[in-house]
Design a protein around this nucleic acid. Structure first.
Lengths: 224, 224
DNA sequence: CTGTGTCTCAAACGTATGTTTCAAACAGAC
DNA sequence: GTCTGTTTGAAACATACGTTTGAGACACAG
């Protein structure tokens, strides 16, 4: 058989359309028309729309989780028994993402947006799929975070991790639009790497904020 | 005329269903069935599904923006010429949201999730509607942020505001699911107020992070 | 009571969706 | 060339959607 590229064309089109419009808002006909492929090909090759969504994630996430595993291995080896710091852990993740071989210049940006959508759109099947398939690197990252922030209570750490996730997913998912705005307003060019370089210190500082303030106060001094 | 409560019943049901499932994933038939109202009533009273979405936002956002304006007025008056601090500004926003009169016990939680969805779901009409109707309090908040972080360059501040926005929108948009997970994993109940109380210090610390690190380093000392 | 405008109701309309069907085209094995 | 399993193609399927329709119910003013 010709080992056709139909599957990849569908995945490429689906990835981009899902990132642009969300899952429910993207129809199979949009995908097959963008991919210049027959409508029935999706159900033939993937079985269902949900399975296609899973395949889009798997195509990126499977090699990425391998890259991430080895980055964590390197990190722990260098630290020689000591737990890696928060900055080191965050950078290991960031570098693994940025260094992934990319199909196009958007690459990581598209996928970050997809990950954000996976969390915000209530696609139960997707969350279940991701948890089942990629629990290992996720758990490992969580454990590294825990060891890097022993001063935090479990609840504090849980929420701050969600905050980090949100800042990252949101920013990366709309990084193209945000870069354009910055270009127009301040005349500054920005790369994804530079965004990451600004994001990591923000996250690290937030993660290590001194105390959880439970009441507002107007008599406080400026924090910094 | 009987001054029917159909309109409010529709708004209540729509608000809750939108928050649970997103906009595209919620059909008018779900809404009218939950509201125990005839299907045609939606188009009769609101004109279209999009107009209903706008009405759901307007019902909360119009009184909220008034509350916010007066909170900012109070804040600036107390500060007597000095620019309010970052913490004060963030708390003014948070408290205005939390103190809004609420229709039910969920209240602010539901609406936070809606606001998050408004950012993450690419509903062009919604974003346009919100920008047109509520640009003033938004601009004012941005100016307060600028005055509260004079040490930041315009570019740094721009990105860090995006990070804050992301952490907030993302967390709030999935706060129900996140609360459930926390409940199951650690057996902890959480209110939106508590989430906000954890979020604000995280944001303030990130906003005031000392330096933007441009390269990863393995020889660094732990930050805190 | 009659008339009028407001509102509800069941039913239908047109369109779009995900999925299925089945014949045709194709590639490689023999 | 012929056969066999794989892939494509155009069309149809059943279902769900947002929206519209027109008749009826209701409250109230005259």
């Amino acid at each position: 058989m010709a080992q056709s590229d139909t599957v990849d064309r569908i995945l490429d089109a689906a990835e981009e359309l899902f990132a642009d419009r969300g899952f429910s808002e993207t129809s199979l006909r949009m995908i097959t028309s963008k991919a210049k492929v027959n409508l029935a090909a999706v159900n033939y090759h993937f079985g269902s729309k949900n399975a296609l969504i899973h395949a889009v994630f798997a195509r990126f996430l499977t090699p990425f989780s391998a890259t991430l595993e080895s980055a964590f291995n390197d990190l722990e080896q260098r630290c020689d028994g000591h737990p890696p710091t928060l900055n080191q852990t965050l950078w290991a993740l960031t570098e693994s993402a940025v260094r992934m071989p990319q199909r196009n210049e958007q690459g990581i940006s598209i996928f970050m947006r997809l990950l954000g959508l996976a969390y915000t759109q209530s696609q139960g099947h997707l969350r279940k799929f991701l948890e089942q398939e990629y629990s290992q690197p996720f758990s490992r990252f969580m454990r590294l975070l825990k060891d890097a922030t022993p001063q935090l209570s479990a609840v504090d750490r849980y929420w701050r991790i969600q905050f980090m996730l949100g800042a990252t997913a949101f920013t990366m998912s709309s990084s193209d639009a945000l870069r354009d705005i910055l270009q127009n307003k301040l005349g500054v060019e920005t790369t994804v790497q530079e965004i990451a370089a600004r994001l990591v210190p923000f996250l690290a500082a937030g993660m290590q904020a001194q105390d959880t303030m439970l009441m507002p106060s107007f008599s406080e001094a400026p924090v910094a």
